[in-house]
Write a protein that binds this DNA or RNA. Structure first.
Length: 107
DNA sequence: GCTCTGACTATTC
DNA sequence: CGAATAGCCAGAG
């Protein structure tokens, strides 16, 4: 279901925003969705799942700075490689992103 | 036009 | 902190 092959305007918008996130910065699904005025945090995640092959999906995180489900290890590798500020946590992969420093706010 | 699913979010226990 | 529940949107069948 929900193949997301750039067939919808929503998908294009998500891809455009995510692709614009600079290295070392991150945005929450909600923020990405809000950027083009469409609160669809879940839909954003679906777009990432399909386009993740060609997008910096690790720069898009959940509300509390948690990485995507099942990709915590993969995401963490990218964060450290790009210098994304992380914080210790007792949940998920044992870490979470420091939104206070990595939060990216598009103009 | 209704139904199902999903890399989400917020609230509550 | 952690697990469970409900509400959210978009797109395919």
């Amino acid at each position: 279901m929900a193949v997301f092959d750039s067939s919808g305007a929503y998908t294009e918008a998500v891809v455009d925003v995510v692709a614009a996130i600079p290295a070392g910065c991150v945005m929450t699904y909600g923020d990405v969705a809000w950027t083009f005025g469409r609160p669809g945090a879940r839909a954003v995640g679906m777009v990432m799942r399909f386009h993740g092959s060609g997008l910096p999906w690790w720069r898009v995180v959940r509300g509390g700075g948690h990485p995507p489900r099942g990709l915590e290890a993969e995401a963490r590798m990218h964060y450290e490689a790009e210098g994304t500020p992380l914080l210790p946590a007792t949940t998920d992969a044992g870490y979470r992103i420091n939104l206070a420093r990595a939060a990216y706010v598009p103009a």
